[in-house]
Design a binder for these strands. Structure first.
Lengths: 391, 391
DNA sequence: TTCTTTCATTGACAGCGGAAAATAAGGCGC
DNA sequence: GCGCCTTATTTTCCGCTGTCAATGAAAGAA
């Protein structure tokens, strides 16, 4: 895939066009009048915004024979042509890279893993380059250029600067990852925090579509939370936000690695659950799967551990709801494998601790395939591509 | 003050003009080039936006002889003429009305109280009308029209609809207060939640000026919190947000009137403190002042109660910081009278429970004179006046 | 076929904000 | 006191975006 060096940019030069495109991207096929209604723009503005996007091939008219209204000229639904552009997303964890190739609609086309052999920035960068190369080879088969790379890293990430300020798992400090990756891969690179990236994916392509205030809670090794307020992902003035895992809910709770007692993560994080199940059963429990097996086998102690975890998560979510009053909380993450073991406790604890109308907030779970994190990274790349500084 | 029936509106018809005016309002006298720099607009746009505002008398040129730069044409600072318009703000509590008359810069000119004799909407409305009449009489002395009335009510308030959805203290449900008050007073009325109103005042005229993410925590009878995220006050999808008072921080804590255990308010709210001090001292303690006196007299039990309250507040603030990563938290409220008794605990608990860079968030206290709540209400009226639906 | 209804497009136009040139208003050096 | 220099502000176009109102298009209905 030699870069065809045509500096083709996304043909969106006005706020209206940008609004139109993201609306169609999120809300599936829409007729022009629906777009006008949704965005508040005039029909004329829609026509003018849509034309260059169709000419450039990013939008296509859907000749949908069904669903005709009885009267009047039939409406012409327009949708995003997902195949028009490809993107890469890579999630960097402490011990592996997960990469995906997605289309413009953020549908995963190819997924790949790569175990990480060394956590220093340089070798990690080399392995990112390797994974990107593999995925680019796959992309060749689609005959469409890859327009951007998103990297998702846990920890304190400054997206605007493209730098990883501090990542505990990788033990990185102030790594200008976007710049480095752009040099080695030749692609435009977007770097963001992993939970925020996942939240962007939900906001544009998932359960958060159309909502201006919602939260994504991830349950797994850590307990994370991405927040969308006023239609924007919350980044925090100092790069830290959504640390629901370190909301302390019990001064008498177990010690957390952050130094406090009773953090949600110290009760419901994977490590904590594995340890607690082991203790309850009086045996060594190696990992989450084994702990889960214990509980599913009916071990009362193990079940109690999960119940306690569910309560902690429910209280954490209630805290978010009490402070922000979101419309929806999406629970996701690998930890959802144990959902049957703590669903009830999450709901009960949430209902009990949510104050007043905050309890009206809907709570929904979503399974999270392992590539989802990488898909989030791709979503940030798509976002960057679309909103590229052409204002 | 007969309404002079001239439907004079605020001469702001463009986003640029609105931006300019609010910038000057918040950031004191500014020269035109400073405005351009701050807002990102061109010098030409500033000139065009400023002229009609000066012509209408809302802005005035400050002939400031000092602070001249050595070289070049002297700059002309421009400031808002506070005296150009007056506003009323009324805070409605369960047992009294607090009203203020402010100028356009939200400086209090006159303050008045009125004990509330009945909590039903109708008599309350009549008393609001009475207080407004008094304040309007005072306003006559200034020879300037009163342009709006803000009403601050605790509870679930829908500002856009101008309705009080539910107020526990007043026992109101779905009262269309803005409409009713507009009818009886003849003024444009803005109704908002009291803590949010206070937050608006801080955002435009207080310590939150220029910040896009901060929180206001009020300590008093209740523990409340107003949040500003992405430069906008958070209202919550269901009208509830910032309920820091009902963030549960200790499952073994005292029972809260909301039904849970260990809410911040159940530990640090006035009622809780009074009860706990009474219990510690083994005597009847009537009110907050008496409880405070006990502690200041050195009673160890009473001091411990305040220490515990401080810790609860600090943990609550840390929760906000962990979730939202604000730049600043402003602590205010009548409860600050006891600040010397729990300042240390607030800081320590915050520092301990804040995760990572969230601890970089500044925490500042601000005394809260009793009229401040009413001033917040006036601030919402000013906001409505300025951003009145002229696009 | 002609009418009705709804969707989409076109062309004229108003108005906002930007760029650059012009003007204003001081000190400074001589 | 006179021109020069510097910085602040205004003026004068000008491009561009989005709206309005009128027109064209594509059905089904009469």
């Amino acid at each position: 895939m030699p870069p065809s060096s045509r500096p083709e940019v996304f043909p969106v030069h006005t706020p209206a066009a940008s609004q139109i495109f993201t609306t169609v991207l999120s809300h599936g096929p829409l007729t022009r009048s629906e777009m006008a209604g949704r965005t508040g723009l005039s029909a004329a503005a829609v026509t003018k915004a849509v034309r260059p996007l169709i000419e450039a091939g990013y939008l296509v008219e859907d000749v949908d024979e069904e669903a005709r209204r009885a009267l009047g000229r039939p409406a012409n639904p327009v949708r995003v042509d997902g195949g028009r552009a490809l993107f890469l997303g890579v999630k960097v964890t402490g011990d592996e890279l997960i990469g995906v190739l997605t289309d413009l609609c953020c549908r995963i086309r190819v997924a790949r893993h790569l175990p990480l052999t060394d956590r220093d920035p340089k070798p990690v960068l080399a392995q990112i380059a390797e994974l990107v190369r593999e995925l680019l080879t796959e992309a060749d088969g689609f005959g469409v250029r890859v327009r951007g790379l998103g990297l998702a890293v846990s920890g304190d990430v400054d997206r605007a600067a493209g730098a990883v300020r501090y990542s505990p798992f990788l033990e990185w400090r102030d790594v200008p990852l976007a710049e480095l990756a752009a040099m080695t891969t030749g692609l435009p690179v977007t770097v963001d925090n992993d939970v925020r990236a996942l939240t962007v994916a939900e906001q544009w392509f998932g359960a958060g579509v159309g909502l201006s205030d919602f939260a994504v809670v991830t349950v797994g090794a850590g307990i994370g939370c991405g927040l969308v307020v006023h239609g924007q992902v919350v980044a925090g003035a100092h790069g830290v936000a959504g640390e629901i895992g370190h909301v302390a809910i019990d001064p008498a709770g177990p010690l957390c690695h952050c130094g406090n007692r009773g953090c949600v993560e110290a009760i419901a994080g994977e490590e904590a659950i594995v340890a607690a199940v082991g203790e309850a059963a009086g045996v060594q429990v190696a990992d989450a799967a084994e702990a889960l097996a214990f509980a599913h086998r009916g071990d009362a102690g193990a079940r109690a551990v999960y119940a306690r975890a569910g309560e902690a998560i429910g209280r954490g979510i209630a805290t978010v709801a009490n402070l922000l009053g979101p419309e929806l909380v999406i629970i996701s993450g690998e930890g959802l494998a144990a959902y049957d073991l703590f669903a009830e406790q999450i709901r009960d604890a949430f209902a009990a601790a949510a104050f007043g109308s905050a309890a009206q907030c809907a709570v929904r779970t979503r399974p999270l395939p392992f590539e989802e994190w990488a898909r989030g990274a791709a979503a940030t790349a798509i976002q960057s591509f679309i909103t590229t500084d052409q204002n």
